[in-house]
Amino acid sequence: MINGVPISFYLLLSAIIFTIGAGGVLIRRNVIVVLMCVEMMMNSVNLTFIAFSRFLDSVTGQVFVLMIMAVAAVEVAVGLALVVELNRHKPGVDINEFNSLKG
């Protein structure tokens, strides 16, 4: 119990947001929204880490979250640069259109 909230509630909330994000990746065809959903999934995992960190009296989970934040920032920067570069070759943001590795 953390301030009267069982840890399973945090885990369930994190699972719900993760599932919504995963569903969004599958449902949406817009590259930018897909990247947003990936960020959302990462964030829900961060929530799990911090909940466990608090539950188990350990700071290691928070260190993990700090690393994940850095990775997420790099990932989104590279991903969006790729989207811009792809857009220069083939206008549009539909991921179904980006189906060939060459040109």
């Binding site: 953390i2 301030n3 909230v5 945090y10 909330l13 930018i32 990247l35 947003m36 960020e39 964030n43 961060n46 929530l47 911090i50 909940a51 960190s53 608090r54 928070q62 979250v65 700090l66 934040m69 997420a72 920032a73 989104v76 920067a77 969006l80």
Partner: peptide, 27 residues
């Protein structure tokens, strides 16, 4: 805000700075 309730204030602020401040603006 949930991070704040979990007593992870530093990461809550970092979350707002990095995610809300940088990533959403980049999007």
């Amino acid at each position: 805000a949930l991070y704040f309730t979990l007593n992870a204030q530093f990461l809550g602020i970092a979350q707002i700075l990095v995610y809300a401040g940088a990533i959403v603006v980049l999007f």
